[in-house]
Amino acid sequence: MLWYHIVFLALIQGLTEFLPVSSSAHLILPAQLFDWADQGLAFDVAVHVGTLTAVVTYFWRDIWNVANGWIASLVTRRSTDDSRLGWWIIIATLPACVAGYVFESFIETHLRSMEVIAYATIGFGVLLWVSDRFFPSHFEQQDFSLKSVLFVGFAQALALIPGTSRSGITMTAARFLGFSRASAARFSFLLSIPLILAAGGLKFLELISSNTEVGWSAIISGVVLSAFSAYLCIYLFLKWLNKIGFLPFMIYRLVLGVALLIVVNLGR
């Protein structure tokens, strides 16, 4: 990988992993427009480590409290806000794991096209805006229940469709249920941790079994740049979300989706 490939892809991965704009849509564009080579498994592992580092660093107090509360609930059988949040994260993660296992082959074969990514980018972007514009906020993070968590979890499974955006669809689901922007975003970010960990772990196992040569300068650069951009993204997103809402992201997704469709049609 050339140095500017490393910088661009690591920054894009870090920024788009947590913004509701779809990282898959952004990562496919350089290869299609500039004929860049695939970044490879090792770099994929690196940027997953970077984004995981960012979200764990930002939410380390929440993670510590939730982990302690969840473990204590197993021992004492007493429920607290932290222990319930731990269970909600586990439960909401399960639908995506099951769907990924069942539909992985179908998705790889039929849904990895730029056209699918374009339509998903546009369609789910509109849904994000609708949920934010027409569904007022009634609930905060402590108001999550089994029913609402399952709804968000099954929505997260839709993120297996390239172009959907995992963070975008989980925030959309929470907003449809009446949760505040901040609560929807924080739960979405916490919910990303087990999935990023699982995806990075699977890619790491695949990397080990493939005997791929590792370029350590690219790996270290990928980790640092993706971690930095992801942390900055989380910080600024949560700081500005209540002021700007989701409309700018919907507009951006529409522009990106149309650009992808133009590239598809030009290539025909």
Rank of each mutant, 00 (worst) to 15 (best):
I219H: 07
S183A: 15
I107P: 07
L190F: 00
W64R: 13
E104D: 14
V264K: 01
W88L: 15
D35M: 14
I28W: 07
L190W: 06
F144L: 15
L52K: 03
T172M: 09
Q141E: 10
V66H: 01
L190D: 04
R112C: 13
I220G: 13
S221I: 06
S73G: 14
G163L: 01
L256D: 07
L207R: 00
F179S: 00
V49A: 00
L266Y: 02
G153D: 04
G168I: 03
L195I: 15
T109C: 12
R61Y: 10
L195C: 13
W60N: 14
F204E: 13
A72F: 01
A54N: 06
G222D: 10
I208H: 08
F151S: 12
S165D: 05
I107W: 02
A25I: 01
L197I: 09
R181M: 09
M114N: 12
L236T: 06
L205V: 07
L202M: 13
W87P: 03
S229Y: 02
S217H: 14
S210E: 12
F176M: 11
V49I: 14
A67Q: 08
I91H: 06
M114S: 15
E140V: 08
F134P: 07
P20R: 00
D38R: 11
V21G: 01
F135H: 14
I262F: 10
H26Y: 04
S23F: 01
S209M: 14
I122P: 02
D35Q: 14
R133T: 10
A173Y: 11
T57M: 13
F237D: 03
V49K: 01
A72T: 12
S131V: 06
V149D: 00
D143S: 11
S210W: 04
S73D: 12
L205H: 02
I89P: 03
W60V: 07
V224D: 07
V66E: 07
L191M: 15
I251Y: 15
F59W: 05
G50L: 04
T172D: 03
L9W: 00
A182M: 14
D143G: 12
A230D: 07
P248C: 06
L9P: 03
V264L: 06
M171W: 07
S131Q: 08
N68Y: 09
S226Y: 08
S83C: 03
A185E: 05
M1H: 06
A54D: 08
L9G: 01
F176N: 02
A174Y: 12
W36I: 08
N68H: 11
Y252A: 09
K243R: 15
L160M: 12
T80Y: 05
N265S: 15
Y231A: 03
F18W: 01
A259G: 10
N65Q: 10
Y252G: 06
F189R: 06
R253K: 08
V223H: 08
S131F: 08
D38V: 12
R112W: 09
L41A: 09
V75F: 05
L236Y: 14
K239G: 07
F8S: 09
G222T: 06
P30N: 11
T93L: 02
A227C: 08
S145V: 11
I219R: 04
V116C: 11
M250A: 15
L27G: 00
P20F: 09
L85Y: 04
L146F: 14
S113G: 11
V116D: 03
S105N: 14
P248V: 08
V55H: 01
V224E: 01
A157C: 04
V152W: 04
E108Y: 09
I89Y: 05
S167Q: 04
R166K: 13
A159N: 10
K147C: 07
T80L: 09
